[in-house]
Amino acid sequence: MAAKGRVTFSQDQCKGCGLCVDVCPVHILALDRESINAKGYNPAYCTDQEKCIACTNCATMCPDLVIVVERL
């Protein structure tokens, strides 16, 4: 059984570049087109926390270190 994880974003620091979105192997990341953070960007968020496998790919590619990954 794949590991379970939890991914947390500091959305106010996110610049909405989307590098994390493409590298997620379980496709649970997206840019939130409904909200704009203080920097003026659409921040990244997790669409389905249950599916996270704590692979850390997203955090590895994040240039702004807004992602914390935990293994449950």
Binding site: A54, A59, C62, D64, V69
Partner: peptide, 24 residues
């Protein structure tokens, strides 16, 4: 916690453009 911000960087948000790999 399997990934968090390193202590080697200050807690400042960089001036780099979105997606600039300088941050990485």
């Amino acid at each position: 916690v399997v990934f968090e911000r390193t202590k080697g960087l200050t807690p400042i948000s960089t001036h780099y453009c979105p997606g600039c790999t300088h941050g990485i």
